[in-house]
Amino acid sequence: MFLKFLTFTIAIGGSALGGPIDPFGSSAARVLTQLPEKTWLESIAVRRNGDILATSLFYSSNIFTVTQPSVHAHNTAKILASVPEVNSLLGITEVPGSYDEEAFFFVGGNFTSLTTFSTTVGSFKGFKLTFPRNGNPTVQKVSDLAPFSSFPNSVTAIPQAPGSVLVADSFVGAIGRLDLLTGQYDPRAFAFDDMAVPKGAKLPIGISAMRMKGSYLYYGNPSTQSIYKVKVDSKGYLVKGAQPSLVANISSVAPGLDDFIFDPQGNILLATNSPENAIVHVDVRTGRSKRIIGGPTDPLMPDSTCLAFGRGILDTNTFYVSTGRNISDPTTSARIVAVDASLLNYY
Protein backbone atom coordinates (compact mmCIF):
# COMPACT_ATOMS: atom_id res chain seq x y z
CA MET A 1 0.00 0.00 0.00
CA PHE A 2 1.55 3.25 -1.13
CA LEU A 3 -0.88 5.76 0.37
CA LYS A 4 1.19 8.79 1.34
CA PHE A 5 0.28 11.02 4.25
CA LEU A 6 0.92 14.76 4.19
CA THR A 7 0.27 17.62 6.56
CA PHE A 8 -2.59 19.92 5.61
CA THR A 9 -4.57 22.73 7.11
CA ILE A 10 -8.02 21.50 8.13
CA ALA A 11 -10.53 24.02 9.39
CA ILE A 12 -13.69 22.42 10.68
CA GLY A 13 -16.30 25.10 10.41
CA GLY A 14 -13.54 27.17 8.83
CA SER A 15 -13.15 30.89 8.58
CA ALA A 16 -15.93 32.69 6.79
CA LEU A 17 -14.89 33.71 3.29
CA GLY A 18 -17.60 35.57 1.48
CA GLY A 19 -20.82 37.04 2.74
CA PRO A 20 -24.42 36.83 1.67
CA ILE A 21 -25.55 38.43 -1.52
CA ASP A 22 -29.02 39.30 -2.68
CA PRO A 23 -30.39 36.92 -5.29
CA PHE A 24 -30.56 38.23 -8.84
CA GLY A 25 -30.88 36.89 -12.36
CA SER A 26 -33.53 34.33 -13.24
CA SER A 27 -36.44 33.66 -10.88
CA ALA A 28 -35.32 30.05 -10.97
CA ALA A 29 -31.83 30.89 -9.72
CA ARG A 30 -30.16 32.72 -6.88
CA VAL A 31 -26.62 33.38 -5.80
CA LEU A 32 -26.07 31.01 -2.90
CA THR A 33 -22.76 32.52 -1.82
CA GLN A 34 -20.20 34.99 -3.11
CA LEU A 35 -16.50 34.37 -2.45
CA PRO A 36 -13.78 37.00 -1.96
CA GLU A 37 -11.89 38.69 -4.79
CA LYS A 38 -9.42 36.64 -6.82
CA THR A 39 -11.15 33.33 -6.25
CA TRP A 40 -11.99 30.82 -8.96
CA LEU A 41 -14.05 27.69 -8.31
CA GLU A 42 -13.32 24.78 -10.61
CA SER A 43 -15.30 21.73 -9.47
CA ILE A 44 -18.19 21.04 -7.14
CA ALA A 45 -19.62 18.01 -5.33
CA VAL A 46 -22.34 17.44 -2.74
CA ARG A 47 -21.89 15.35 0.38
CA ARG A 48 -24.34 12.79 1.75
CA ASN A 49 -25.48 15.33 4.36
CA GLY A 50 -26.17 17.92 1.64
CA ASP A 51 -23.13 20.12 2.25
CA ILE A 52 -21.34 21.46 -0.82
CA LEU A 53 -17.64 20.97 -1.53
CA ALA A 54 -15.87 23.13 -4.12
CA THR A 55 -12.27 23.20 -5.30
CA SER A 56 -10.41 26.41 -6.13
CA LEU A 57 -8.11 26.93 -9.10
CA PHE A 58 -4.88 28.93 -9.43
CA TYR A 59 -5.58 31.67 -6.91
CA SER A 60 -5.60 29.23 -4.00
CA SER A 61 -5.49 25.51 -3.34
CA ASN A 62 -8.46 25.35 -1.00
CA ILE A 63 -11.50 23.16 -0.70
CA PHE A 64 -14.42 25.35 0.26
CA THR A 65 -17.61 24.12 1.89
CA VAL A 66 -21.15 25.48 2.18
CA THR A 67 -23.16 23.80 4.92
CA GLN A 68 -26.87 23.04 4.63
CA PRO A 69 -27.38 25.07 1.44
CA SER A 70 -31.07 24.19 1.20
CA VAL A 71 -31.87 25.40 4.71
CA HIS A 72 -30.47 28.92 4.86
CA ALA A 73 -31.55 31.85 2.73
CA HIS A 74 -27.99 33.21 2.69
CA ASN A 75 -24.85 31.15 2.97
CA THR A 76 -21.13 31.66 3.41
CA ALA A 77 -18.34 29.59 1.94
CA LYS A 78 -15.71 28.44 4.40
CA ILE A 79 -12.32 26.83 3.95
CA LEU A 80 -12.55 23.16 4.86
CA ALA A 81 -9.03 22.17 3.80
CA SER A 82 -5.92 23.68 2.23
CA VAL A 83 -3.36 21.76 0.19
CA PRO A 84 -0.09 23.77 0.29
CA GLU A 85 1.85 21.32 -1.87
CA VAL A 86 0.13 22.66 -5.02
CA ASN A 87 -1.36 26.00 -6.07
CA SER A 88 -4.48 24.73 -7.85
CA LEU A 89 -7.18 22.14 -7.33
CA LEU A 90 -9.37 20.73 -10.11
CA GLY A 91 -11.87 17.87 -10.38
CA ILE A 92 -13.46 16.24 -7.32
CA THR A 93 -15.67 13.16 -7.09
CA GLU A 94 -17.16 11.04 -4.32
CA VAL A 95 -15.69 7.56 -4.11
CA PRO A 96 -17.66 4.61 -2.72
CA GLY A 97 -16.91 4.05 0.95
CA SER A 98 -18.16 2.26 4.02
CA TYR A 99 -21.01 3.30 6.29
CA ASP A 100 -18.48 4.70 8.76
CA GLU A 101 -16.53 6.70 6.20
CA GLU A 102 -17.29 9.18 3.45
CA ALA A 103 -14.54 9.95 0.95
CA PHE A 104 -13.82 12.14 -2.08
CA PHE A 105 -10.98 12.02 -4.58
CA PHE A 106 -9.58 15.19 -6.16
CA VAL A 107 -6.59 16.29 -8.21
CA GLY A 108 -4.29 19.28 -7.94
CA GLY A 109 -1.10 20.73 -9.39
CA ASN A 110 0.68 23.94 -10.29
CA PHE A 111 -0.56 26.51 -12.79
CA THR A 112 1.69 29.36 -13.91
CA SER A 113 -1.05 31.20 -15.79
CA LEU A 114 -4.80 30.76 -15.93
CA THR A 115 -5.30 33.01 -18.95
CA THR A 116 -2.99 30.90 -21.14
CA PHE A 117 -3.60 27.60 -19.31
CA SER A 118 0.10 27.19 -18.54
CA THR A 119 0.96 24.43 -16.08
CA THR A 120 4.02 22.78 -14.55
CA VAL A 121 4.20 19.35 -16.16
CA GLY A 122 4.63 16.59 -13.59
CA SER A 123 3.40 18.66 -10.64
CA PHE A 124 -0.04 17.06 -10.55
CA LYS A 125 -1.13 14.69 -7.81
CA GLY A 126 -4.19 12.79 -6.66
CA PHE A 127 -5.59 13.27 -3.15
CA LYS A 128 -8.25 11.69 -0.98
CA LEU A 129 -10.45 13.69 1.38
CA THR A 130 -11.98 11.49 4.07
CA PHE A 131 -14.81 12.25 6.49
CA PRO A 132 -14.78 9.60 9.23
CA ARG A 133 -18.01 8.99 11.10
CA ASN A 134 -16.35 10.22 14.27
CA GLY A 135 -13.48 12.67 13.99
CA ASN A 136 -12.13 15.39 11.76
CA PRO A 137 -11.72 15.19 7.98
CA THR A 138 -8.26 14.36 6.64
CA VAL A 139 -6.47 14.80 3.32
CA GLN A 140 -4.00 12.21 2.05
CA LYS A 141 -1.91 12.11 -1.09
CA VAL A 142 -2.69 9.00 -3.10
CA SER A 143 -0.44 9.36 -6.13
CA ASP A 144 1.96 11.64 -7.99
CA LEU A 145 0.18 10.60 -11.20
CA ALA A 146 2.37 10.36 -14.29
CA PRO A 147 5.54 12.44 -14.84
CA PHE A 148 4.00 13.94 -17.98
CA SER A 149 0.59 14.74 -16.49
CA SER A 150 -0.05 18.34 -17.48
CA PHE A 151 -3.73 19.16 -16.95
CA PRO A 152 -5.68 16.39 -15.16
CA ASN A 153 -8.94 18.26 -15.29
CA SER A 154 -11.90 15.99 -14.59
CA VAL A 155 -12.25 12.93 -12.34
CA THR A 156 -15.02 10.38 -11.91
CA ALA A 157 -15.60 7.41 -9.66
CA ILE A 158 -16.45 3.94 -10.96
CA PRO A 159 -19.49 2.64 -9.02
CA GLN A 160 -18.59 -1.05 -9.36
CA ALA A 161 -14.85 -0.54 -8.83
CA PRO A 162 -14.54 1.45 -5.61
CA GLY A 163 -10.76 1.10 -5.54
CA SER A 164 -10.25 3.00 -8.81
CA VAL A 165 -11.05 6.36 -10.37
CA LEU A 166 -10.74 7.79 -13.87
CA VAL A 167 -8.76 10.99 -14.53
CA ALA A 168 -9.11 13.03 -17.73
CA ASP A 169 -6.03 15.03 -18.77
CA SER A 170 -7.01 17.90 -21.06
CA PHE A 171 -3.50 18.45 -22.47
CA VAL A 172 -2.59 14.78 -22.88
CA GLY A 173 -5.99 14.17 -24.48
CA ALA A 174 -6.67 10.87 -22.74
CA ILE A 175 -8.32 9.33 -19.68
CA GLY A 176 -6.14 7.62 -17.09
CA ARG A 177 -7.07 5.01 -14.50
CA LEU A 178 -5.77 5.32 -10.93
CA ASP A 179 -5.65 2.60 -8.29
CA LEU A 180 -6.41 4.37 -5.01
CA LEU A 181 -4.74 1.71 -2.87
CA THR A 182 -1.42 1.35 -4.68
CA GLY A 183 -1.18 4.75 -6.35
CA GLN A 184 -0.47 3.07 -9.69
CA TYR A 185 -1.64 5.16 -12.62
CA ASP A 186 -2.25 4.17 -16.24
CA PRO A 187 -2.33 7.56 -18.02
CA ARG A 188 -3.83 6.26 -21.26
CA ALA A 189 -6.51 3.80 -20.21
CA PHE A 190 -8.78 5.50 -22.76
CA ALA A 191 -7.17 7.33 -25.68
CA PHE A 192 -9.26 8.25 -28.72
CA ASP A 193 -8.72 10.92 -31.35
CA ASP A 194 -11.81 12.83 -30.25
CA MET A 195 -10.27 13.29 -26.78
CA ALA A 196 -7.25 15.15 -28.15
CA VAL A 197 -6.73 18.81 -28.98
CA PRO A 198 -7.54 19.21 -32.70
CA LYS A 199 -4.91 20.77 -34.93
CA GLY A 200 -5.40 24.51 -35.16
CA ALA A 201 -7.72 24.65 -32.13
CA LYS A 202 -7.99 28.13 -30.62
CA LEU A 203 -8.36 26.63 -27.17
CA PRO A 204 -5.52 24.17 -26.37
CA ILE A 205 -7.77 21.85 -24.40
CA GLY A 206 -8.93 18.35 -25.22
CA ILE A 207 -11.22 16.24 -23.06
CA SER A 208 -12.38 18.36 -20.13
CA ALA A 209 -15.22 16.43 -18.49
CA MET A 210 -16.59 12.91 -18.12
CA ARG A 211 -19.27 10.94 -16.31
CA MET A 212 -20.29 7.30 -16.18
CA LYS A 213 -23.93 6.50 -16.88
CA GLY A 214 -25.20 2.95 -17.24
CA SER A 215 -23.03 1.03 -19.71
CA TYR A 216 -21.36 4.13 -21.12
CA LEU A 217 -18.63 6.59 -20.29
CA TYR A 218 -19.63 10.05 -21.54
CA TYR A 219 -17.02 12.74 -22.12
CA GLY A 220 -16.82 16.24 -23.57
CA ASN A 221 -14.21 18.08 -25.61
CA PRO A 222 -14.51 21.90 -25.62
CA SER A 223 -12.28 22.23 -28.69
CA THR A 224 -14.78 20.28 -30.78
CA GLN A 225 -17.75 21.49 -28.70
CA SER A 226 -19.00 17.92 -28.61
CA ILE A 227 -20.02 15.21 -26.18
CA TYR A 228 -19.25 11.57 -26.95
CA LYS A 229 -19.90 8.20 -25.35
CA VAL A 230 -18.13 4.86 -25.41
CA LYS A 231 -19.25 1.51 -24.02
CA VAL A 232 -17.60 0.24 -20.82
CA ASP A 233 -18.13 -2.73 -18.54
CA SER A 234 -19.28 -2.59 -14.90
CA LYS A 235 -15.67 -2.12 -13.70
CA GLY A 236 -15.12 0.87 -15.95
CA TYR A 237 -12.95 -0.87 -18.53
CA LEU A 238 -13.40 -0.32 -22.23
CA VAL A 239 -15.53 -3.03 -23.84
CA LYS A 240 -13.40 -4.87 -26.39
CA GLY A 241 -13.80 -3.32 -29.81
CA ALA A 242 -15.94 -0.42 -28.56
CA GLN A 243 -15.58 2.88 -30.40
CA PRO A 244 -16.86 6.32 -29.38
CA SER A 245 -20.02 7.77 -30.88
CA LEU A 246 -21.20 11.37 -31.00
CA VAL A 247 -23.94 12.30 -28.52
CA ALA A 248 -24.25 15.97 -29.41
CA ASN A 249 -22.46 18.94 -30.89
CA ILE A 250 -23.51 22.15 -29.13
CA SER A 251 -21.67 24.65 -31.34
CA SER A 252 -24.92 26.10 -32.69
CA VAL A 253 -26.15 26.79 -29.16
CA ALA A 254 -23.07 27.82 -27.18
CA PRO A 255 -19.38 28.35 -27.95
CA GLY A 256 -18.16 26.68 -24.76
CA LEU A 257 -18.26 23.35 -22.97
CA ASP A 258 -17.04 22.53 -19.47
CA ASP A 259 -18.26 20.01 -16.90
CA PHE A 260 -21.67 18.31 -17.03
CA ILE A 261 -24.08 16.16 -15.03
CA PHE A 262 -27.12 14.01 -15.76
CA ASP A 263 -30.58 15.17 -14.72
CA PRO A 264 -33.21 12.77 -13.28
CA GLN A 265 -34.41 11.97 -16.82
CA GLY A 266 -30.92 10.89 -17.87
CA ASN A 267 -30.24 13.92 -20.05
CA ILE A 268 -27.24 16.22 -19.76
CA LEU A 269 -26.93 19.62 -18.13
CA LEU A 270 -23.60 21.26 -18.90
CA ALA A 271 -21.74 24.38 -17.85
CA THR A 272 -20.40 26.38 -20.78
CA ASN A 273 -17.81 28.58 -19.04
CA SER A 274 -16.78 31.86 -20.71
CA PRO A 275 -17.89 33.57 -22.92
CA GLU A 276 -21.32 31.89 -22.93
CA ASN A 277 -21.71 31.80 -19.10
CA ALA A 278 -24.78 29.60 -19.36
CA ILE A 279 -26.19 26.15 -18.68
CA VAL A 280 -27.17 24.02 -21.67
CA HIS A 281 -29.56 21.06 -21.73
CA VAL A 282 -28.72 18.16 -24.07
CA ASP A 283 -31.20 15.44 -24.97
CA VAL A 284 -29.01 12.33 -25.10
CA ARG A 285 -31.43 10.50 -27.41
CA THR A 286 -31.78 13.14 -30.11
CA GLY A 287 -28.65 15.23 -29.56
CA ARG A 288 -30.77 18.38 -29.47
CA SER A 289 -29.44 21.07 -27.15
CA LYS A 290 -30.58 24.44 -25.92
CA ARG A 291 -29.52 27.07 -23.42
CA ILE A 292 -31.80 27.01 -20.40
CA ILE A 293 -30.37 29.70 -18.11
CA GLY A 294 -27.67 32.36 -18.16
CA GLY A 295 -25.96 33.85 -21.18
CA PRO A 296 -23.16 36.14 -22.38
CA THR A 297 -24.83 39.30 -21.09
CA ASP A 298 -26.29 37.75 -17.94
CA PRO A 299 -24.11 38.45 -14.85
CA LEU A 300 -25.48 35.45 -12.96
CA MET A 301 -22.90 32.76 -13.81
CA PRO A 302 -19.59 34.24 -15.00
CA ASP A 303 -17.34 31.39 -16.17
CA SER A 304 -19.71 28.61 -15.12
CA THR A 305 -17.49 25.59 -14.49
CA CYS A 306 -19.31 22.66 -12.86
CA LEU A 307 -22.69 21.45 -11.57
CA ALA A 308 -24.06 19.09 -8.93
CA PHE A 309 -27.59 18.24 -7.82
CA GLY A 310 -28.60 18.65 -4.20
CA ARG A 311 -28.95 15.57 -1.99
CA GLY A 312 -31.26 16.86 0.74
CA ILE A 313 -35.01 16.59 1.09
CA LEU A 314 -35.45 20.25 0.18
CA ASP A 315 -33.10 20.49 -2.78
CA THR A 316 -33.44 17.30 -4.83
CA ASN A 317 -34.68 19.45 -7.74
CA THR A 318 -31.93 22.03 -7.26
CA PHE A 319 -28.56 21.95 -8.96
CA TYR A 320 -25.64 24.05 -7.80
CA VAL A 321 -23.26 25.76 -10.22
CA SER A 322 -19.69 26.75 -9.38
CA THR A 323 -18.19 29.69 -11.24
CA GLY A 324 -14.84 31.26 -11.89
CA ARG A 325 -14.83 35.00 -12.29
CA ASN A 326 -14.70 37.54 -15.09
CA ILE A 327 -11.18 36.67 -16.20
CA SER A 328 -10.52 40.19 -17.53
CA ASP A 329 -11.57 41.84 -14.27
CA PRO A 330 -9.45 40.88 -11.20
CA THR A 331 -11.90 42.58 -8.84
CA THR A 332 -14.56 39.95 -9.52
CA SER A 333 -14.76 36.64 -7.70
CA ALA A 334 -16.23 33.18 -7.74
CA ARG A 335 -19.70 32.28 -6.53
CA ILE A 336 -22.02 29.32 -6.20
CA VAL A 337 -25.44 29.64 -7.81
CA ALA A 338 -28.50 27.56 -6.86
CA VAL A 339 -30.89 26.75 -9.72
CA ASP A 340 -34.37 25.25 -9.19
CA ALA A 341 -34.66 22.86 -12.12
CA SER A 342 -38.39 22.43 -11.57
CA LEU A 343 -38.87 26.06 -12.67
CA LEU A 344 -36.94 25.62 -15.92
CA ASN A 345 -39.02 24.65 -18.93
CA TYR A 346 -36.52 22.65 -20.94
CA TYR A 347 -38.45 19.50 -21.84
Rank of each mutant, 00 (worst) to 15 (best):
F2H: 00
I21Y: 01
D22I: 07
P23W: 05
P23E: 08
F24E: 12
S26G: 04
S27A: 15
L32V: 09
T33E: 05
K38N: 02
E42V: 09
S43H: 14
S43L: 03
V46A: 06
V46M: 08
R47I: 03
N49Y: 02
F58D: 02
Y59V: 01
S60L: 00
F64H: 10
T65N: 09
P69N: 06
P69M: 13
S70D: 13
V71S: 10
H74V: 07
K78E: 10
L80E: 11
L80R: 00
L80T: 06
A81W: 04
S82D: 06
V86F: 04
I92V: 13
T93C: 14
S98L: 08
D100V: 07
D100H: 13
G109M: 06
T112L: 09
T119F: 11
T119H: 12
F131M: 08
R133A: 13
P137F: 02
A146S: 14
A146N: 08
T156N: 06
P159T: 04
L166H: 01
S170I: 02
V172F: 12
I175Y: 04
Y185A: 06
F192S: 05
M195I: 03
K199I: 03
A201F: 14
L203A: 07
L203Y: 10
P204L: 04
P204Q: 04
P204H: 02
R211C: 15
M212D: 01
G214S: 12
G214I: 03
L217Y: 08
G220D: 14
N221F: 01
S223W: 03
S234R: 13
Y237W: 08
G241S: 03
N249E: 03
S251T: 09
S252H: 02
P255K: 14
D258N: 15
D258G: 04
I261K: 10
G266T: 09
N273F: 11
N273E: 14
P275M: 13
E276F: 05
N277L: 11
I279Y: 00
V282E: 08
D283C: 09
R285N: 13
G287Q: 09
S289C: 14
P296N: 06
P296D: 06
D298E: 13
L300A: 08
L300V: 11
P302Q: 12
C306L: 00
A308Q: 01
G310V: 09
R311L: 14
S322M: 07
R325D: 07
D329Q: 15
R335K: 15
I336A: 08
I336D: 05
D340P: 00
Y347D: 11
